[in-house]
Write a protein that binds this DNA or RNA. Sequence first.
RNA 1: CGGGGCGUAGUAUACCGGUAGUAUAUCUGGUUUGGGACCAGACGGACCGGGUUCGAUUCCCGGCGCCCCGACCA
Length: 414
Amino acid sequence: MLQSELFTKTRKEAPQDEVSKNARLLIRGGFIDKLQSGVYTYLPLGFLVLKNIENIIREEMNKAGGQELLMPSLQPKENWEKTGRWDSMDDLYKVKDSSGRENALGPTHEEIIVPLAKQFISSYRDLPLYLYQIQNKFRMELRAKSGVLRGREFLMKDLYSFHTDEKDLARYYEIIKKAYTNIFKRAGIGSRTYFTFASGGSFSKYSHEFQTVTEAGEDTIYICDKCSVAINKEIAGGKAECPKCGNADLKEEKSIEVGNIFELKTKFSEPFGLAYKDKEGRDIPVIMGCYGIGLGRLMGTIVEVLSDERGIVWPEEVAPFKLHLIELSSGSKKVEKAAKAIYTGLQKKGVSVLYDEREGVSVGEKFADADLIGIPYRAVISEKSLAGGGVEIKRRGESKTKIVSSAKLAGIFK
RNA sequence: CGGGGCGUAGUAUACCGGUAGUAUAUCUGGUUUGGGACCAGACGGACCGGGUUCGAUUCCCGGCGCCCCGACCA
């Protein structure tokens, strides 16, 4: 993409009402725009990042046997009354249309997927079953905060699993645990993300969260270095010990909940009468699990964890482009021609490139933009680089540069 | 939802009871080009409603919006 044609421009300063690092950098770089508190537009650059995150998640969910579908946000009141959540869930958005009909704007989708699954599950032969979607959620947060980390409308992947018994649920739980570990690794935050024991609510001892260590987090966890797991402060009580090995020498950190998985068991299958016939022909309630990841929150977490004083440092798999090609021509036709040839050549090889061919933009500004936007590789082409034998290449986040011939440039992205 | 703070050009800010200045961005023209370069000109602004006042962007009241702390958060 030509940078001169990019919809957005970078900003030197962030709006004073944004305090969080993720929102300040994402707004300055032209990734997002705030419409109202807790509600953001994803601009072209941000949308590219979001799509990359989405693809990572989709690949891992498919690998775990998930079938993707898309459910509505407008959800009839009756479904929510059946589970009692129409009245009990205080962050539920309720909308009344001109005919007087009432709907919820979906904050989660148990109320929809369970009656849906009921249409197709009747026998033990139909189980297990794994369904997921990537879809906007609405939650009336009393206090939206921390940029994209806690919003009122946000993209979320939610997967629901259906099983014959708890043993099978436990088996699948482990599969998703691995899938989530892969997702956070590919998203570049694996080394700081811990499998965490958290409050289980009324049906089980624990639920589990994936918590990423950063000062920007609103949760506090205690990490066991021996087991590389953590326990959420909300259930740790006064003296925390590792739920796995009993170690009491835990490290306290602030963290962001980037994913959660929990056992629903029969909490939703019962109100909707979701049951299957076993081999003896008896009706048995279906056992369920559910598993969520907020995509915007994940994007914000990546920014919180992987950025420096100059801007964002995107991991390769989520970066909006693989390479930021910067032309410093000073009006030199030779440099212009060489840069353009490299750009077209890389495009043909399928390497995504943001090509800064803007005229009359100073060197400092181009470099500052590249640092802020945070594409993993920066290639500079100028009189100087050509004299040195080609293109000067540098990784974002590192300071050493090296010259490679333009022929060899594409090889870096294999 | 409790407490606190803040609303002035696209953005960041200043001053003021007498209708608003600067920077940056944008537009025009020109000079520049290895870390947000420079010159000249132009465009553009007081959240909404009410009150006090000869006069309100400024003071008072109400609303709305935004941020922070807390509570809440399958």
